[in-house]
Design a binder for these strands. Structure first.
Lengths: 356, 356
DNA sequence: GCATTTCTCGGAAACGCTTTCATAACTGTC
DNA sequence: GACAGTTATGAAAGCGTTTCCGAGAAATGC
């Protein structure tokens, strides 16, 4: 019958008001820690009296369970790892916003890594996340990533992975994508609706599924509306910059039959095209109507404000996170999850650069 | 003498290759877990032979200590909480980049929260971080925050807090700031060097230390260079938007003696001013030379490219994190940390909008 | 050859929580 | 009143580490 008054075992306790623990509540009420735990977690076999007393005291002491202890005991970290190529980026930071909101709602926290488009860095971060015992991973691949053992490592340990935006087709994992084809179609059809007859397209590099999709949408819209596809009106930029947009726009206007509309693969290219047109005395949208893609913050501040195709970044983050958490929960019940692919719709954001 | 072969206590172990633990190494070598631990952590009282064997096997099994168990044992989380008003924001995402780099270097991970400029949300996040037992907190206050109990709560528990950018003067905590006065002075002196005689200033709202500082730098530069300060040339926008920039620029050009140079409190206002000037037929920089502040991504894409004062966001993140981690370490040794304030220098980013 | 120091190592407790199992006290039944 | 069934609770194990303490063996000192 050892009545012992906690002889400061808690590694001396000189510091200020340490947070209350289960045993603190238990001691004060003269009951055991396990009863307190059950009372707080709503187990049925606790007498109403005890439960009430426990809840009241917990409230009074501002008791919060120590998540670290819970994690150790429950074999989960309640952390999801997020790997993206770049943080300082309008689209990705929107995605992060969505991820954080969804994670927060489900009681998860986010561990963030940026690969800076380096495959080595991405693998290093993956190893770190694996080591940190994250419960799941959201990843948008670096452009330079060619092999995927680092993703396999997660699967091998049973940690679910959901890919978004920059995905690898053949990896068996859930994916969240944006419907670039639809976006390209919407943009082009909008220009058609504005009366454009010769619509040019400044496209991105060959390969990436995003730029290919936008190009496909462009062609689809032309066909559906009975407009001819003229290869001369399609220009490719290998690196999508404002300067590339300027140069390619100059080429387009030098054609015998220059375009009266432009759909650019990215706002940046569209803005370059706008600058070029203005410098050479053309009026936007009167001479050439322009629409970009992505709808970054810069679209609304250029002159004239640039129409664009909005990519639902926030929504993408939320969707991917919901998917991931669902898979985490399934995994905890030892049930296998079948990969799903969600395709998110884009939305036209019409401004002055394309309306006439 | 109970020889017992781990009868799958590890909560059944049906799953795939679980990560190796200390005891796994210990069992295979026929030694105790404590010896393994000490061998790996380089304690002196381990024989070279055992140490070598342990290290080799740990390597082979890809052993990594479970951070959750370490955290519980060591009473630290190795997580730092970061609270910012907005993630989708060029400056703040740069800061986050710096924070992440520094945190990573010191073996810390980052838990991110955004207040969305809401005081309630900020307090809620603070409570969450407190509950999560983060080792330290980096915060840039929401604009709407008026009371600071939530920061006090961290101090009360001995969790260091470092404030950056949006700081509260009277709170005793380390701070990292940007030298807005210097930035304002640099910008104005640059315009003076370009031959501007009547330099206008579109300033931000009264109150915030940032806008006041930029204004002070503006006056300082005028005085130092013997130019008169003309209140008519200073316009205040309550909300800093492109539209405000346009309207105020129109007012300035309507003056009897309009300006030949403009220093705007923000790139956004500067861009608004540029749009207004171009629409009314003025040439930039010929008629009015313009410089903004912040040097966001948009500065380089407008036409002409906008000169600006670069705020070292990345550097700010890194500096704040270094400071915080220093305080965390001091706290672990029960040594009090004296708050420091670091002021970071800005840098001119000269582009076409101001050079003539 | 005995006492003492040095060198290695194992045992055990602790971090805070959850959950299984056991038990004690009741309640009801025949 | 003996038994089964219920209800409320406690003891203890376990999650994976780290670290204090002490024990045995080897080495040293006299």
């Amino acid at each position: 019958m050892a009545y012992y008054a906690c002889a400061l075992p808690r590694s001396l306790q000189p510091y200020m008001n340490r947070p209350a623990r289960l045993v603190d509540i238990a001691e004060q009420l003269g009951i055991s820690a396990s009863t307190v735990s059950r009372a707080l977690r709503g187990y049925p076999d606790i007498s109403p009296d005890t439960k009430e007393a426990v809840v009241a005291l917990a409230e009074k002491l501002h008791y919060r369970p120590n998540p670290i202890a819970q994690n150790l005991r429950n074999q989960e970290s309640r952390i999801i790892g997020v790997m993206i190529p770049e943080i300082v980026h309008y689209f990705f930071s929107s995605v992060i916003g969505g991820i954080m909101e969804a994670a927060d709602q489900h009681g998860y926290t986010v561990m963030l890594c940026q690969s800076s488009e380096s495959e080595a860095r991405e693998k290093q971060d993956a190893a770190m996340l694996l080591n940190s015992r994250v419960d799941g991973v959201l990843i948008s691949l670096s452009d330079t990533t060619r092999t995927f053992e680092h993703l396999e490592a997660f699967r091998a340990r049973g940690t679910p992975v959901v890919m978004f935006d920059k995905v690898a087709e053949h990896i068996a994992a859930s994916k969240v994508l944006i419907d670039d084809v639809q976006g390209g179609r919407l943009a082009t059809e909008h220009l058609i609706a504005q009366g454009c007859k010769r619509i040019a397209h400044i496209r991105g590099p060959h390969g990436p599924v995003t730029t290919e999709g936008r190009m496909a949408g462009y062609r689809e819209a032309l066909e559906r509306n009975g407009l001819p596809f003229d290869p001369a009106l399609v220009k490719t930029c290998t690196r999508v910059t404002k300067e590339a947009g300027m140069a390619l726009m100059a080429e387009l206007m030098a054609l015998e039959a220059p375009p009266d509309g432009l759909f650019a693969v990215t706002d940046l290219a569209a803005i370059g095209a706008m600058v070029q047109l203005k410098r050479t005395g053309y009026a936007i949208p009167h001479d050439v109507a322009i629409i970009g893609f992505s709808d970054w913050d810069m679209a609304s501040i250029v002159d004239p404000p640039l129409s664009s195709v909005f990519q639902p970044g926030f929504d993408m983050g939320r969707t991917a996170t919901d998917l991931l958490i669902r898979e985490i929960r399934l995994g905890q019940q030892e049930q296998p999850a079948v990969p799903e692919t969600h395709v998110l719709e884009t939305q036209l954001q019409i401004r002055a650069s394309s309306t006439r």
